[in-house]
Design a protein around this nucleic acid. Structure first.
Lengths: 339, 339
DNA sequence: CTGAAAGCGCTAACAC
DNA sequence: GTGTTAGCGCTTTCAG
């Protein structure tokens, strides 16, 4: 049995209130009682029960990272890990209690985000993995509990968002391809309704138009962000297009770029000699592929860190809900051939 | 403000005790009161406060996944993710509440594992990332709170462990190299004191001896499991050995195999023509490298699942603490040349 | 079958 | 400065 605040109070000959003051660095307590209590608490191996603490005081040092679709998707392995690292890093540095909850679309139907917070007595959360078809996508805007989404703006007074300028990033990536002499570019898109998809597409189109390239509808290849699909989809593309109708594949995620690369190699082409491929995300795996894939690094860990930071400030009232745009970085590697 | 059990009781014209019974599927309640309460609870958007629940009842449906060193190490990115997925999958299927806590060596000094459990009112935990130098490595054996470690046996009546037969797996991997005609094999080792390192080394030595190969001390290359080191260490190896003194590098992790591969390629060698390289772990990245790396798949997700399962059974008393050995699988790919 | 009441371990007024 | 006490929202005896 662990010792409770009662045990410490008894052993120190003081009341529980005083022990509580000592443990929580209250000012109105004499230095020597504090020391005595702290010593005894340590001797007894006393640790405050965080659950009781949370129940009695509505404190705001408890936040959460809520991952939707974590168990279903396999595409974003290190995406979520890096996000976690960022969030936990912030929590660690600021002495916050952070917990992680895994939900899905079904759970979103069963309980609102606010209910989720009340269930766990959390002050707010960083939300990742929301799809535009998810219940929270619509209901979050009314939330009174602060939260910060990643990459999806849903609006609302208590909802912040941390993202990149995906359009600008994709513009840059496209420009890079064009600078390397590419004119015939196929765009491999992610999930049709995802905001990140349309943002990125917008950037690509913008860059192409600026450079006088005409944007062709049939050079848009549709997928659901899954590597497996990429393979299939490239094959289909070549059924409708001649091998030399395209010189580069502009992919909306690194996993798609990997899938496309694999597919092309399997068809007997060599990269980047026959075709150039670029990705998006900055997953570490792209540094190990052959060729190493040129991509845009989203700096996901920092996104997690900044999301937690914004959330905490919103909880403390020192920052209002906002849309935070973090810098990205074009990572030039070996998957693009200069024509 | 969320509605509480009081609100529901009031609205339904019953006592809180009855609401509690209805919500928790107690048998001693009439069917129609239950239905009425459930309906009203739903109308009010009532969700039991899990914190209060946890405080009042010492229930055992709350477990945790405790990751040590999560913030420090970068080598095991998807290792931890897959482990999480396994644990959360089990929790999800069995309606358990699972939370994740990130600790490190310092936190281990500050509070024992039991204290950690009491702090959060958790019934037990799956522990990953323990180093042999960590405080818990010694103290865990005395724990009265059930836990399951991954890959490190520390003993104790309440401590289970889920692992692979690393020796047998490494034996198999070594045998594969030998079967492909390799006789001159350098072994790239992980952290010196890690149990997994010695187990794997044991397997390699066993296989070599069985095949009449003599085991040479200077063919052991020491690292700390980090990819960055691998590069350096390979260079050093070749300073003391001629290029044709070795034909294959047997690495204790996939990240090491990647590091070694990179290093060899940078030196101008081509794989697997000049040298063969094999890894260990089964990280998904090995399927994307060039060449695709032959490795041993530990099936990490299943390890997480089985660890959670064992933990839950230990908590329920239906299974005693044990050392569970899960099957591994040799993944033959393209990084080994047949001599 | 249901209500009343005593906690779970802690915090936060409110007294003194 | 410190003790006392009323909760936080729930479960779980114990009566009836």
């Amino acid at each position: 049995m662990p010792s409770t605040i009662q045990d410490v109070a008894r052993a120190a000959g003081v009341s529980v209130g005083t022990v509580s003051r000592a443990m929580n660095d209250y000012p109105d307590i004499s230095e020597k009682t504090r020391e005595k209590i702290l010593r005894i608490a340590h001797e007894l191996g006393y640790r405050p029960n965080l659950v009781a603490k949370s129940l009695s005081s509505k404190n705001f040092r408890e936040i959460a990272l809520v991952l939707s679709g974590f168990l279903e998707d396999v595409m974003f392995n290190d995406f979520e890990t890096m996000l976690m690292k960022g969030c936990y890093q912030f929590a660690f540095e600021h002495d916050l209690d952070i917990s992680m909850y895994v939900i899905n679309s079904k759970i979103q139907e069963e309980k609102t985000f606010e209910q989720l917070c009340y269930e766990h007595n959390i002050a707010g959360a960083v939300l990742f993995g929301l799809k535009s078809t998810d219940p929270y996508f619509k209901t979050l805007a009314q939330s009174r509990k602060p939260c910060v989404t990643i990459d999806v703006e849903v609006g609302g007074a208590c909802v912040g968002n941390v993202t990149n300028d995906h359009a600008a990033a994709f513009d840059e990536l496209t420009q890079y391809l064009i600078d390397q002499g590419h004119r015939k570019i196929a765009i491999v898109c992610g999930r049709k309704n995802a905001t990140v998809t349309s943002e990125r597409l917008e950037g690509a189109v913008r860059a192409m138009k600026r450079n006088g390239l005409e944007f062709q509808e049939d050079f848009i290849i549709q997928t659901n962000f899954l590597k497996e699909e990429a393979t299939e989809v490239v094959k289909q593309f070549f059924e409708g297009h001649s091998p030399d109708s395209v010189t580069a594949f502009l992919c909306m995620s690194d996993m798609l770029a990997i899938g496309v690369s694999e597919s092309l190699k399997k068809m007997g082409y060599s990269l980047p000699d026959d075709y150039s491929v670029v990705g998006y995300d900055g997953l570490y795996v792209t540094d190990y592929t052959e060729p190493r894939i040129t991509t845009v690094d989203q700096n996901i860990k920092e996104k997690g860190y900044e999301a937690a930071s914004l959330l905490f400030d919103m909880i403390c009232g020192t920052r209002t809900a906002q849309n935070l745009i973090l810098p990205h970085k074009l990572e030039i590697r070996d998957s693009v051939k200069k024509l």
